[in-house]
Design a protein around this nucleic acid. Sequence first.
DNA 1: CGCCGTGTTGACTATTCTCAACCCAGGTGG
DNA 2: CCACCTGGGTTGAGAATAGTCAACACGGCG
Lengths: 278, 278
Amino acid sequence: MYKGSSPDGIGREEIMVAPLIRKLENFTQLAEEEKAVLAKVASRTKSLGPRQDIVREGDKPDAIHLILEGLACRYKELPDGWRQIMAYFIPGDFCNLRVFIMTEMDHSVATLTPVILATIAHQDLLTLTSQYSRITQALWWSEMVDEAITREWLLNVGRRTATERMAHLIYEYFVRMRAVNLTVGNTCELPVTQEEISDTLGLSTVHVNRTLQDVRGMGLIELKGKRLTLLDPQGLQTLAMFSPTYLHFLHQPQDRTANDQARRSKLEQPVGLPMTPR
Amino acid sequence: MYKGSSPDGIGREEIMVAPLIRKLENFTQLAEEEKAVLAKVASRTKSLGPRQDIVREGDKPDAIHLILEGLACRYKELPDGWRQIMAYFIPGDFCNLRVFIMTEMDHSVATLTPVILATIAHQDLLTLTSQYSRITQALWWSEMVDEAITREWLLNVGRRTATERMAHLIYEYFVRMRAVNLTVGNTCELPVTQEEISDTLGLSTVHVNRTLQDVRGMGLIELKGKRLTLLDPQGLQTLAMFSPTYLHFLHQPQDRTANDQARRSKLEQPVGLPMTPR
DNA sequence: CGCCGTGTTGACTATTCTCAACCCAGGTGG
DNA sequence: CCACCTGGGTTGAGAATAGTCAACACGGCG
């Protein structure tokens, strides 16, 4: 157990992990001690500039990275120069939780904006998860949601039209940002270039530009500079054929304090993939 | 520990799990006892016809399914009728290993051909993994590879041309089939319709037909009936821009008995994601 | 025999890409 | 302070890729 962190005093560390905690609490209730432990484990931070690789394909993975601030992505490149972005990492997201089973990275992770990240050593994660089973479960859940998002992106790129894809990407992004308290009303930051969007949706930059204009023209969103506003969330969701199931939230964003308790208690029993590595 | 299975007698059960064992041994060496235990755990089998749902989106997940024979897939459908296949499950594959953390399925799993599958109860998996750490690790590895394949598919659909996509799908499929001993020379079964390929690659059936003719016309493959032959594996791999890293095999298909031992020993230490659910 | 599921083809259309130019805002250096 | 440079964003025109629709071929199989 970690000593020396006051359970009620909110230090800089705890502010930094606030998104992570907020996210995990979509799944389970964390005790003050557990929150403090998370803050402690994520206290070794590092600042990076924009468009910088964090891990590169072919690397031997070393530590786990947790985004505290800024936006990063997972991507892969083809020998002919094309790039596909396969995930956005927002604050509270782990870049590569399961990395220790890999002998070699099969993809890269890079920042999009300036980023502050926490580096967590394998051993620290091991200690953490062996002592706090609720954290373990929550990390499991987070991992599962990441996979579900990847699958949804495959559906997105494979079977939605350009406009629908765009709507879906934006709506999903907004919902995820809201889940870590990084939205204000119907507004949040979306600090990506159109080229990055094109690498995400499998379109050309020109077509992204025109698609964006379409979505704007329908009165669904406003996107100027790096600021996104949903003018018509319902319309956007409909266009995107977005269904939130795959994000596996326990509650609607509005009713956090409602009758979650009942649903949560069902999850207090061990549900994680039952695999102990020793 | 499971009793009553003769470690050296090869029964029907062990033949059925042969692909699984063959696959897991890409990652680690299994003892006879471990193989027997796997056979035992997968002994509750079920036969299904073609094009039948195994699990449906929205279901509460109950048990884990392991494909013993035949071909299945993971898919999602859009309200407007489009379908995206997100994975092929060949013998030795688990459909939904991490299902116990889900309260509700976010995708469906269906057979493509007639299938024989094993149903594994949560508790059995728990017991298995708590007793056999090497199996646990191997399952972890298998899970990680599945995720890597999904990401590669996203790259495929997002950034490769129709011809390249087709080549990549076929080449990857062949490599996976070879890894479970279901190839003969450069030949294996590929029992899918062109419509199913179109739902996999995000193309129309007509375009799949023409793309297939292109690939045939280049002299790279033969595909008649449900039988696939790679006429020019090297050419196919090049066209597909296929790099096998993401499959995380420990060895090349040819040198199974070579100096794997050294590489394997590096992996004998615990490397799985260190999460115990209790 | 005839039906049905698949595969194949042609003709036409729609979507998306490419290329090239131009605009605009912010930052830098003279 | 301003001129210039640069990295996005925007636009137009034409080309390529992929989709749609409709017809037909082919091979089991009831």
